[in-house]
């Protein structure tokens, strides 16, 4: 089994590609209320929205984007290997299977409320087809200045050399904005989603970004529930990752055994507690901010060599 591919290879491609920085994207559910709004915003950002899919609406156009009945037709016509899915949660399983069977290699699953069992089934298929699923319940991926595949607002993000990985949507915007204000633009930000089972786990997302040339820092925005942060902290230790890493963990004050909005944000016994995550990050020499606004401050300190762990630095991945 090979690991997940570097995110910039999928999202932007290589300078020799005919579609370098113009990777075609399919929007599944492009004529729906939510899908249409965000398709427009993606086009506005400069994303190459090459095709939309809405069963029964094939042959139509949406703002000049051709609409197809199936992902198979859309992929064949455009060569797109990235699809952003906007269908209602209970139709996600069918839509995702259709995309993966049509050769989609990066499936960005926006819907919230997808049953875990459906996610598991999609991930099994994605594994067999060598595809990457991001989400469900994710804001998507943005490579600032190049491509926005998801529902994040454009304004918090600016091109730069820091990668941000987040379970939460609005906290991703909030913290990216704070980073941007402090002069830390982003090479890429990946929302992994707030569900219990994530197509791309924090450790997978780490593998997708760690080799980015010139990467100067990594910010991880976690929250209570599961053990993704703990496993990432272990991976950071084991991999000898050289660039500065700073984390934030939401949910310290949340009561146990209550789902805090996200399906995945629940502490059961000690499984998923903020204390456990913070203590593992500390072991990995990753400072954990108490407030979102503290993230850029800690990152700056870490970059200046404070707190150790900052190894060879830029481009060492």
């Amino acid at each position: 089994m090979s690991g997940p591919p570097p995110v910039l290879d999928i999202m932007a491609g290589a300078p020799g590609d005919a579609d370098y920085r113009r990777k075609p994207v399919i929007i599944q559910g492009i004529t729906g209320k939510f899908g249409s709004r965000h398709a427009r915003l993606m086009v506005e950002y400069g994303t190459n929205v090459a095709a939309g899919v809405t069963p029964g609406k094939g042959g139509q156009e949406f703002d000049g984007v051709p609409v197809y009945d199936t992902v198979g037709e859309a992929a064949a016509a455009t060569g797109a290997r990235i699809s952003v899915v906007f269908v209602p949660a209970r139709h996600f399983l069918a839509a995702a299977k259709e995309a993966l069977e049509a050769g989609v290699k990066l499936l960005i699953a926006i819907p919230e409320h997808v049953p875990v069992r459906d996610t598991l089934e999609v991930l099994e298929l994605a594994g067999r087809r060598g595809a990457t699923v991001v989400g469900p319940n994710t804001p998507g991926i943005i490579v600032p200045g190049i491509i926005k595949a998801g529902i994040m607002p454009a304004s918090p993000f600016k091109p730069g050399n820091v990668a941000v990985l987040s379970k939460s949507g609005t906290l991703l915007y909030e913290i990216s904005n704070a980073l941007t204000q402090a002069g830390f633009g982003q090479a890429v930000t990946i929302g992994i989603g707030g569900d219990p089972i994530n197509g791309t786990r924090l450790t997978d997302a780490f593998e997708m970004v760690r080799g980015i040339p010139g990467l100067r820092g990594l910010v991880v925005v976690g929250e209570i529930g599961g053990d993704a942060e703990e496993l990432l902290a272990e991976r950071i230790i084991d991999s000898g990752f050289g660039a500065p890493v700073v984390a934030y963990v939401a949910g310290r004050a949340a009561p146990r055994e209550k789902r805090m909005g996200h399906a995945g944000a629940i502490v059961m016994g000690d499984y998923g507690s903020a204390e456990s995550k913070v203590s593992m990050f500390n072991k990995a020499n990753v400072p954990v901010a108490r407030r979102p606004a503290e993230v850029p401050v800690l990152l700056a300190t870490k970059m200046e060599g404070g707190g150790g762990g900052a190894g060879p630095g830029p481009g060492s991945g």
Binding site: A253, G261, R291
Partner: peptide, 13 residues
């Protein structure tokens, strides 16, 4: 957003 509201609870506490 769930993360933002959790974060607000933490800071309030």
């Amino acid at each position: 957003g769930a993360g933002l509201v959790m974060s607000t609870l933490d800071m309030l506490a």
